[in-house]
């Protein structure tokens, strides 16, 4: 294993933080990321904030809202059974 393969810079680290949510990283990637996060406070902050953005984006899915459906229901019936 050469040093080059283990070296993860900030650009690569942020990329791995994103990809990690969807796929299992390889051993080298995991180790490289772990090592990088250990020494880089900026990327640790990125990791935290990225997760926060994720949960905010996901949270919008279940936003409870009152809807007035009467007009839409009328429109639907007019275009189908009407």
């Amino acid at each position: 294993m050469s040093e080059r393969h283990l070296h993860v810079n900030c650009r690569k680290a942020t990329e791995l933080v994103e990809e990690r949510t969807a796929r299992k990283l390889g051993l080298r990637e995991r180790f490289g990321l772990w090592l990088h996060l250990l020494i880089c406070a900026g990327c640790r902050a990125y990791e935290r904030q990225s997760a926060l953005i994720d949960s905010w984006l996901e949270g919008r899915r279940d936003h409870p809202s009152a809807v007035d459906s009467a007009a839409l229901q009328q429109r639907i019936l007019r275009d189908t059974t009407g």
Binding site: N9, C10, K12, A41, G42, C43, R44, A45, Y46, Q49
Partner: peptide, 13 residues
């Protein structure tokens, strides 16, 4: 170019 944060874009920790 080396892939490190520019100082003015470094996430504030």
């Amino acid at each position: 170019p080396e892939g490190h944060w520019h100082s003015d874009h470094l996430p504030q920790h």
